[in-house]
């Protein structure tokens, strides 16, 4: 019987201790509330906003200064995409240097409206031509504007990618 009473008070003591630990955590939060605010005042800090490294906003095809990309048109990303948001249109063209016919990228069509940012296309790409961009302001007035062509006009394949 005495043990039951002792257990009763022990339980109360442990409960109060547990509650105080919780209050300590939130108390620490409010004491540092001014310095450690996690939320950002978005439209105000638009110019200085830094997105996180791993943030997935949209698929981008990387181009260097000479307007060259690394996409060989192999369609691995198109195959990897679970919801068909990537369409690779390619053609066999004559290479101006070697004179041989070769598979080349014509148009990289990307349907942003269907993309779920699953990152599978980036993992599938053998030449690291595409990457997840950080832009998240995708609102447009017409649905057709969400279908994008990622390779810039006149862009070519970067040298040395296929070797």
């Amino acid at each position: 019987m005495f043990k039951a009473i002792a257990d009763y008070f022990k339980e109360i003591y442990q409960t109060i201790r547990g509650l105080l630990v919780g209050m300590g955590v939130t108390g620490k939060y409010i004491a540092h509330a001014r310095r450690e605010i996690i939320t950002q005042e978005y439209p105000d800090n638009r110019d200085t906003l830094q997105m996180f490294e791993r943030f997935r906003g949209e698929v981008v095809l990387l181009h260097n200064e000479d307007n060259e990309h690394r996409c060989t048109g192999c369609s691995a990303c198109e195959v990897a995409c679970p919801n068909g948001s990537i369409e690779i249109i390619w053609a066999r063209r004559e290479d101006p240097e070697t004179g041989k016919k070769k598979k080349q990228l014509e148009t990289f069509v990307y349907h942003l409206s269907m993309c779920t940012m699953c990152n599978l296309c980036i993992l599938a790409c053998p030449t690291d031509a595409i990457k997840m961009g950080h832009n998240f302001e995708h609102a447009v007035f017409d649905r057709s504007q969400l279908t994008k062509v990622l390779n810039r006009p006149g862009s070519r394949l970067e040298k040395g990618v296929e070797e």
């Binding site: 939130t26 939060y29 409010i30 509330a33 450690e36 605010i37 996690i38 939320t39 005042e41």
Partner: peptide, 13 residues
């Protein structure tokens, strides 16, 4: 406001 500070948010401002 206090709730926001407890959750490290800003609250109505």
């Amino acid at each position: 406001r206090i709730c926001a500070f407890f959750q490290l948010r800003l609250g109505p401002n």
